[in-house]
């Protein structure tokens, strides 16, 4: 009797866990998949692949996916380069003031960071006014457009602001942990040049140790939303904006495509993440 009560309790808790941590996402994913296959929704007429075909033929969708991946890759590459550089300078000479300042962006939600950088970089923003007072530009129209622009300069810069400090702090911590200073001394006494040490020891070691976090942050950047909403463009737009635009439109015919893209995005995040999880044995 007692063991039967225990099994019920066990099943009850497991169900609660599933209800909170599994069901919402799986139910939502199932609904989106069903919607994209014409199985549910206001205009549903039974199973069809037409919405997926439309999505695959939609250049806007491909551009959106490519743009998200490109912005994430560039932001990540710049953030990592800067973080590696800062951590190396810290290795050569302790930078405690800088270290404290690196904590500041961690208090910025993406929305606030996007807002601040918008007002710093826009043609009527702080930097444009500063350039005018310094006599570098003659007026508002002479300032280069770096917000809501095609190359996404403002977007990337805001991502770097959000991501690089975390990696700089991480690399500093990793350096101390592996006693990078001692390694550099040994390398020097064995006749290694600084560039050789950086290329063959410092950079590979740091990146390899931070590989999982790099992967997770890349996924975070692919899913950028608030920053892109403020500093991105409407075409090409990042994946999350493509999804919310399609789902929020009054044109009902666009909604299945939005759901199809949502499924693609979640699968992409899952594939990118789960490779990492298996490899790093964090489960």
């Amino acid at each position: 009797m007692k063991s039967q009560t225990r099994s019920w309790q066990f099943a009850g808790v497991l169900s609660l866990y599933l209800l909170i941590c599994g069901v919402p996402l799986l139910a939502g994913l199932g609904y989106s998949l069903g919607y994209s296959l014409g199985l549910t929704g206001l205009l549903s007429q039974g199973f069809t692949l037409v919405h997926w075909q439309t999505l695959l033929q939609d250049t806007d969708a491909w551009r959106s996916m490519g743009y998200s991946l490109l912005v994430a890759a560039i932001s990540m590459a710049l953030s990592l380069s800067l973080a590696l550089g800062v951590a190396w300078l810290h290795e050569l000479r302790s930078q405690n003031t800088l270290r404290r300042w690196l904590l500041l962006p961690l208090a910025f939600p993406p929305l606030v960071a996007g807002f601040s950088w918008y007002y710093l970089l826009s043609p009527s923003g702080f930097l444009s006014r500063l350039a005018f007072h310094l006599g570098w530009i003659g007026g508002i129209e002479a300032f280069p457009v770096i917000v809501n622009d095609f190359p996404g300069v403002g977007l990337v810069l805001t991502h770097v602001f959000l991501v690089f400090p975390l990696f700089a702090l991480l690399f500093m911590h990793q350096s101390a942990k592996v006693r990078m200073g001692a390694l550099w001394q040994v390398a020097q006494s064995l006749g290694s040049k600084r560039s050789q040490f950086l290329r063959r020891v410092y950079i590979p070691l740091q990146l390899r140790k931070a590989e999982l976090l790099i992967r997770l942050y890349a996924i975070f950047l692919i899913g950028t939303y608030e920053v892109a909403l403020l500093l991105g463009r409407s075409s090409p737009r990042v994946m999350t904006l493509y999804i919310t635009d399609k789902l929020g439109r009054f044109n009902l015919a666009d909604i299945p495509q939005g759901h199809a893209m949502l499924v693609v995005y979640i699968l992409l995040a899952g594939v990118l993440a789960f490779g990492g999880i298996k490899k790093y044995r964090i489960l």
Partner: peptide, 10 residues
Amino acid sequence: LIAPVSFGAL
């Protein structure tokens, strides 16, 4: 792993 806005959309 997924963006909060996508979770909201789901």
